[in-house]
């Protein structure tokens, strides 16, 4: 196992709105591994995931996930209501330069809905379409923010299967979630101990605090 891990994070601190929220985070995620992030609301899970996706710079520490390796899925699915299911997926397949969308449709059980416009889908169906987008990106690292919101139990199982297949294919996944996905092999990281301390207690300064420097 001389191959470097897909994601490795050391001493990472992230800030939201100019204030540090998390600090001192270390983890590595290798090929075929999944990491589940837990923590109370507002701890900074979304901020951490956006940092991993390259949407915002880390406040401190090192982050060795290439943004080109990451496929990010947020709360919003980025679907266009007037486009059909296949049009939505084909667009992302074209952007990422990957081929057929049929495996993704099948994996997320969307084949029967393929010609329906996205605005006529239910919330759970939309979510499944949003997750199918991950399959057409062809990228190894999935960074998922609450992927199971509005999914029913059967769809959660479907999703877990897709994640397992992705891991088996040499991918990796970082998932922030509150519910049990049934991915028992995945490591769980509770973010509560990494809550940033106030600067007076030796914590890291956000850009907001620099007015005090």
């Amino acid at each position: 196992m001389s191959e470097p891990p897909l994601v490795s994070v050391a001493g990472l601190a992230v800030a939201r709105g100019g204030l540090a929220v998390l600090e001192g985070i270390d983890f590595v995620v290798s090929r075929g591994a999944a990491l589940i992030l837990r923590g109370p609301n507002g701890i900074g899970k979304t901020t951490l995931l956006r940092t991993l996706a390259g949407l915002q710079p880390p406040l401190a520490g090192t982050l060795s996930a290439l943004p080109e390796a990451v496929a990010y899925a947020a709360h919003a699915d980025g679907l266009k209501a007037t486009l059909s299911v296949t049009e939505n997926l084909r667009f992302w397949a074209a952007v990422y330069g990957t081929g057929s969308i049929d495996p993704a449709l099948n994996a997320m059980n969307l084949s029967a809905l393929r010609d329906r416009p996205a605005h006529s889908l239910s919330a759970g169906q939309k979510r499944r379409l949003g997750l199918a987008r991950l399959l057409v990106t062809g990228r190894p690292v999935w960074v998922l923010d609450e992927p199971t919101v509005s999914l029913d139990a059967a769809s959660v199982a479907l999703f877990a299967t897709a994640v397992r297949a992705h891991l088996a294919g040499g991918g990796a996944a970082l998932i922030a979630t509150h519910i049990d996905l049934g991915l028992h092999e995945a490591r769980v990281l509770d973010l509560t101990p990494f809550r940033a301390r106030p600067p007076e207690a030796g914590g890291i300064r956000g850009s907001f605090d620099e007015a005090f420097a």
Partner: peptide
């Protein structure tokens, strides 16, 4: 600068 300090203090208080 003072307003900025105030804002930082308030945000910290809220959090």
């Amino acid at each position: 600068i003072r307003a900025r300090r105030l804002q930082a203090l308030e945000t910290r208080e809220r959090m």
